[in-house]
Write a protein that binds this DNA or RNA. Sequence first.
DNA 1: TATAATTTTGAAAACGTTTGCAAAGAGGTC
DNA 2: GACCTCTTTGCAAACGTTTTCAAAATTATA
Lengths: 336, 336
Amino acid sequence: MVKSIKDVAKAAGVSISTVSRVLNDSQGVREELRQKVLDAVQNLNYHSNAIARALKGMPMKTLGLLIPSIENPFFPSMVRGVQDEAHRNGYTVFLCNTDGSGIVEETQFKLLLNKKVDGVILVASKHTPKYLKDNLDFPLIMIDRYVDSPNLSYVTVDHAIGVKLALDHLYSLGHRNIAFLGSKLVSSGARERFQSYKRYMYDLKINFDESLLVFGDYTYESGIKMAEELLKRKVKFDAILCGNDLIAFGVIEVLKRNGINVPKDVSIVGYDDISFSSYHTPKLTTVHQPTYEVGQMSTKIILDMISGVDKRIKHIKIEPSLVIRETTCRVGSVDK
Amino acid sequence: MVKSIKDVAKAAGVSISTVSRVLNDSQGVREELRQKVLDAVQNLNYHSNAIARALKGMPMKTLGLLIPSIENPFFPSMVRGVQDEAHRNGYTVFLCNTDGSGIVEETQFKLLLNKKVDGVILVASKHTPKYLKDNLDFPLIMIDRYVDSPNLSYVTVDHAIGVKLALDHLYSLGHRNIAFLGSKLVSSGARERFQSYKRYMYDLKINFDESLLVFGDYTYESGIKMAEELLKRKVKFDAILCGNDLIAFGVIEVLKRNGINVPKDVSIVGYDDISFSSYHTPKLTTVHQPTYEVGQMSTKIILDMISGVDKRIKHIKIEPSLVIRETTCRVGSVDK
DNA sequence: TATAATTTTGAAAACGTTTGCAAAGAGGTC
DNA sequence: GACCTCTTTGCAAACGTTTTCAAAATTATA
């Protein structure tokens, strides 16, 4: 049978207020009684009822985490980052998949609110600001993407740097005809990657060619389609910057099918550095997004918001890095 | 400001009991009042407080899910399976990583109990039965692996069938020297895969050779090590059955490095069919574990246990299937 | 030793629900 | 119209805590 504070009180021969005090503040209770209570807690194997505490306004020590889908290999390490940081602080996290649907997102968000989560971390959608209007004081933080809303915190990755890293690398290898196969400009991340691509191509004085651009989704299948489309255009290219790693895998598959060697004929740079990228053959050169750190940092921040230590709005962009592996090489290179 | 049942009662001009009744049973309340209450709920945008309900013994509609690590690509789809089924029923799920540590598992389990989850789904460890002794009536189900404990339910995959499928396929392609590179026999899944391998090798009248056996972990790095070990032994083999896909990727990498062609020289069969198996080059022939279904079915069962519809112990093994792709071919085959 | 100041303790209210019980109302029957 | 039955309603207790407030115990001060 599950014990209550009452049982402990009886066993220790004190009032429930005393037990509660020992369990919480610990202030102003005689050492002798304190010990008695602690012993009783031990003997009865008592564990406090988080529900009852929450009803009195205490924190549930529970976080909500809303992502598009845990099946998308981009998210697991981000999720792990928030979970590790949460667990370290006695917090537990509800994980929900929205499949990118604003409606589902809102439903899940409200459900989490009913269950009295202390805060929510979410991968935002265009729909997000709609229902957040009401909950401006509630601890919340966006990760990966953000929506325009100056009084909402977020932590994401600095894609301007990521794209620059990739383009500089390709440029230094002699590539000048660099195609971009990315996602439709539907999230802040996709927009920033494309805009940075345009800007750095300009900075590098590479003339910008519309026909080197294909847009699709962040999936393998879309990578296949986009690569086929690019090939069909008969335009000259010696390198491809992909919007993410999944796209890159699809692209490589299509090039191989068409007898085009990667990296000898065409260099490929991915984006994300999901775990598979280093298991792939050839191993993928890609921009590493520090997703674990994004998850971890967002959790630290929201925990601070909850405890009241620091309630300020934070806009954080973590620096990505370039991981050079086997899908890029000097243009016209002959070895291997 | 967040509304309570009291506000609704006042707005509708009824007592809180009436409000509660229309929100729950709906039995024995005049249609007129029922409508008034419903309107008030609408107008005030009232949402019930799950915490207060739980305190009165109502279900929290919350599940705990304990897995080794969400970063292990084997688990996301399983997690998704439980989440989808849970959400469909208004349930929310706490996801926790144990890293395979029994201590962490127990700590997390107790924490979840404090937070009044209605049931727990877990990937068991040898440590599991220890702390479960006390909680035999609590709704709980094991997935993926099980520990010997006749009064605990589980749903897993029938590895005897999976291994048979793989071996029959290899046999029919003419392979007779089939190595097995798998995990140390630390979980029910690992044990069953190895024992089934031994048994079917015998059934197929292939003489069983100890030197074709290497044990390690379910990781890429371990796959590398095991393949190197196998090569070092200078033993003849024309096919390898791998304990999981990650191992298979490592193995393929090592073979490639050593100038051994897959599948021309050596056929490889993986196990799991994680998403990346179809993005890999060459695409991996592998045993598909229906992990999504495992997650979904375990959730259905635990929901039935919680609602009291069906409290019987269930031991379920779902059938895997073989996905033939590009890493296996007829022995001595010359084309490609 | 008496009194004041301080510390320690417990009784009880409150958090937002559900539910048993009794009161009130509605509808039949004679 | 009086009585009975059945349905609808509200009051109040309970769930397991935290916390305010006042009472009791202890310590310090004179």
